[in-house]
């Protein structure tokens, strides 16, 4: 039993969890209002979009790639879904949702094809498609916003009503997505192949892993999840604006994912860690205004957190390499 706890404490997730608790205690000490059900509710509502997109980004990072275009994919799916709601109100809501997810997957697949076909660094490709897809958003929408009155009530209620314990639908969907991602990554052959590819892209094909298929898959999934997040954006905020929706979203998501202990060197990362990373960032975004700190500090915090997480990741990796070398020399 003690060994079990020992192992638990040495996991990356434990560190993030302790940090969350620590922040909650410190903030609660300064401002007792923070420790309340209301805070919990606001935090819960702040995270679903990030959580869903983070699941996709995490898979991309584990495969040793990165996807900078998710903010624009989110906006594209969101605006098309919004336009379907506006121009074809007779269609059921689910059509808009499915179209958004499918479009997201298609744009993600496009990223993947460019990366695979031309062997380009994904970060530069997706920097290009970040702009390209944003251009598509303006093009299809004619630079017009989809106004609140066109977003179906049933969709907006997803972020307001709750089936159980007052937890809004949106939050439940996000955690279901996280759970399914966990099942996929940890309990399917394909899921494990993503880790194998990211750990060692040279060895992966030699072990019979279809590198092209896995790479296309992670980018498509990342796109599809960003698409889903797009519909949820419409639900949460009640409008879609071509110039605002999803701008800078990728940086928040990447911050959350690397804080969650997903390594940018591929092969390392868990769903639990990512969920905790998203929670940590979400909690800070709620705590800042309660503490009377200007919301302007949010980006400073996100940026500092990315840099810090990279530093920690590097230290951990160095230590594990050293430990491995020692184990080898004593053996």
């Amino acid at each position: 039993m003690s060994r079990f706890f020992n192992e638990l404490l040495h996991r990356r997730e434990a560190g993030i969890f302790l940090m969350i608790v620590l922040i909650a205690i410190v903030v609660g000490f300064i401002e007792p209002r923070f420790i309340s059900v209301e805070t919990l509710r606001i935090t819960a509502l702040a995270i679903p979009l990030i959580l869903i997109a983070a699941m996709g980004q995490m898979m991309v990072l584990v495969a040793r790639h990165v996807d900078l275009s998710i903010g624009s994919i989110l906006a594209f799916s969101s605006i098309v879904a919004g336009m379907i709601f506006r121009d074809m109100p007779e269609l059921p809501v689910i059509v808009g949702v499915l179209v958004a997810i499918a479009l997201g997957a298609a744009l993600g697949l496009f990223n993947g094809v460019l990366v695979v076909l031309f062997r380009l660094p994904s970060i530069i490709v997706t920097l290009g498609t970040l702009s390209l897809f944003r251009g598509f958003v303006f093009l299809v929408s004619g630079a017009r916003q989809v106004d609140p009155q066109f977003i179906p009530r049933s969709l907006i209620q997803m972020s307001q009503t709750s089936p159980i314990f007052g937890i809004p639908w949106l939050v439940i969907i996000a955690f279901v997505v996280a759970f399914v991602t966990y099942l996929f990554l940890d309990h399917t052959r394909l899921g494990r192949q993503i880790y194998a590819l990211g750990s060692n892209p040279v060895a992966a094909p030699l072990r019979g892993i279809n590198v092209v298929r896995v790479t296309l898959l992670v980018f498509s999934l990342s796109g599809a999840l960003a698409g889903l997040a797009g519909v949820m954006y419409a639900s949460r905020f009640g409008y879609v604006n071509p110039g605002i929706t999803g701008v800078g979203f990728e940086f928040t998501v990447i911050a959350a994912v690397v804080v969650g202990g997903v390594s940018i060197n591929g092969g390392v990362g868990t769903v639990l860690g990512t969920v905790l990373g998203v929670l940590l960032l979400g909690m800070v975004s709620v705590a800042l205004p309660i503490l009377g700190v200007s919301a302007f500090w949010q980006d400073v915090f996100n940026g500092a957190v990315i840099v810090l997480a990279l530093l920690i990741d590097r230290t951990v990796r160095e230590r594990s390499i050293r430990a491995m070398a020692e184990a080898r020399s004593t053996a």
């Binding site: 900078l68 990447i254 980006d299 940026g303 990315i306 840099v307």
Partner: peptide, 17 residues
């Protein structure tokens, strides 16, 4: 490539502050 994504968010945030 990754670390400057972090500092880009950081510097932009500082400008905003």
């Amino acid at each position: 490539i990754i670390v400057t994504i972090g500092t880009l968010t950081l510097y932009r945030g500082l400008a905003q502050v």
